[in-house]
């Protein structure tokens, strides 16, 4: 690839040229929060090292998605509202979350067709993160905040320019047929093996990982005390880049019955409520335990990834000050004993 370095001043121009035929999603301000949103005017786009309030999960797995319509003639129509999309400026923690979503929704015997279609049509352009926000703990989750290859293109910040790394064929296709000369930064040469050399050199703290058998974690941890402050509002699951639990909801719209998929949350009592009235997770103790164990034990056992990227969003937004990082550290201490 001839494109190695592009001028920072030219990045928006480049994105405009790339974006033809694609919906462009990037960080922008909305109601005082930096979020991923569709960019219609390039001035809205914010290129920074700031981790947005929300992850870009909703562009692969929307909070509300029309799945299918049943009509009065007895037909069913599958709906597909996916669009070719570029998601720009995704930080390594949010890119890491894609591994979990893909493993659960797009692998195994059954696939989630809506997710798979969106994933196929989406190109992720990753960027590094310069500093940890309060609540961030990606390093303790073993994530390099400066670089990730879990994307299609990665822009490495070199001060006055970005080094463009094309990772997938999909990423490469974005640049095909583009006159790149005007975006190029002056010739620069890079040392070999840059990917390796940019791993953080500072001593990494102990990894937050749970390696115990599920019954041990389930039974030996004082979940009552840990869950005590939880209000069960579910904001942690909505903002989590790896949470993917959902429900189907049928809505009557004129002559149609439309089936929507909506995000659901293990923090809500009705999530597991049986029609009989029985509820296997009837108190917040069981629900909070499920959330932590699903992330750190069950998905890890089934898919091989811990479903927590250390993005810290659940910690920063919790109205009751719940902190998954200290909870997991505490569990590790209990297990060490």
């Amino acid at each position: 690839m001839s494109l190695e370095a592009i001028s920072k001043k030219r990045i928006k121009e480049l994105l405009e040229s790339l974006g033809e035929g694609y919906k462009l999603v990037a960080p922008a301000w909305e109601d005082g929060k930096l979020v991923f949103k569709e960019i219609k005017n390039m001035d809205e786009m914010v290129i920074s090292h700031e981790l947005p309030y929300k992850s870009p999960k909703e562009f692969l797995f929307p909070q509300l998605e029309r799945m299918m319509c049943f009509d009065t003639t007895g037909g069913v129509t599958v709906e597909d509202q996916s669009e070719k999309t570029i998601v720009f400026g995704v930080k390594p923690c949010d890119l890491e979350a894609l591994k979990v979503l893909k493993a659960v929704l797009a692998q195994g015997k059954f696939h989630d067709a809506w997710f798979v279609t969106r994933m196929e049509k989406t190109i992720f352009i990753g960027m590094g993160c310069s500093s940890e926000k309060p609540g961030c703990f990606c390093a303790q989750r073993g994530i390099n905040r400066k670089y990730s290859s879990t994307c299609d293109v990665f822009l490495r910040d070199m001060g006055d320019h970005y080094k463009v790394e094309i990772i997938t064929d999909k990423g490469r296709s974005l640049f095909n047929g583009l006159d790149l000369k005007k975006f190029k930064f002056e010739e620069v040469s890079y040392p070999e093996n840059m990917a390796q050399s940019s791993r953080p050199t500072d001593e990494t703290p102990r990894l937050l990982e749970i390696d115990a058998e599920e019954n041990v974690v389930f039974n030996q941890v004082d979940w009552d005390r840990i869950a005590e402050r939880c209000l069960g509002c579910g904001i942690c699951t909505y903002l989590c880049p790896t949470c993917h639990c959902f429900a189907f909801k049928d809505v009557k719209e004129k002559d149609l019955s439309v089936r929507y998929r909506v995000w659901d949350s293990c923090m809500y009592p009705k999530f597991t409520l049986h029609a009989s009235g029985h509820n296997p997770r009837s108190t917040k103790k069981e629900r909070f335990r499920q959330r932590v164990m699903h992330k750190y034990v069950y998905i890890k056992q089934n898919q091989g990834y811990t479903a927590c990227t250390g993005c810290g969003r659940c910690i920063r937004s919790c109205p009751a000050g719940m902190n998954i990082k200290t909870v997991v550290s505490e569990i590790m201490e209990v297990l060490d004993e």
Partner: peptide, 24 residues
């Protein structure tokens, strides 16, 4: 066993007992 479930195919996250899913 029976459990509340949405998808029936191991995605929706409702019917697990430990790491096992009642649906799959």
């Amino acid at each position: 066993l029976e459990m509340r479930m949405t998808c029936g195919v191991g995605k929706c996250g409702k019917c697990n007992i430990g790491h096992r899913y009642v649906c799959i």
